[in-house]
Amino acid sequence: MTVSLAADGSFVSVTGNTCPRGAVYAKQECTEPLRVITAVIPVSGSNLPLSVKTSGPVPKEKIAAIMQVLGDVSVTAPVSAGDVIVPDVLGTGADIIATRSVAATHL
């Protein structure tokens, strides 16, 4: 699969893709790559870490900055899967949400 970009980095065309989703992905990946970020953060009131994710894909270049934000987040058990931990993280439109439940009893 080949993606052609103009000198200024703007998208021109995709060739050699075998399905329509390939073209969409290739264009996205070459112009503004997106990733869902997952991580674990400490929870006070529990000795188990909480796993979290961005509720949708966010620009790849924001990964480091988002991890920085997560480093400063404080969460207290209990937490339920799906709880919003950080709304609209760094203005990306995606929330940081819990992907599992952590009870307060794990001490």
Binding site: V36, T38, A39, V40, S51, K53, A81, T99, R100
Partner: peptide
């Protein structure tokens, strides 16, 4: 799956990308 907190599970079965704990749940 409990320790596979990354996403990408379930694309075929649920047509969405879940993390391991979410898929297991």
């Amino acid at each position: 799956l409990r320790q596979c907190i990354h996403n990408g599970f379930g694309l075929h079965r649920f047509h969405e990308e879940l993390t391991g704990p979410e898929y297991a749940q």
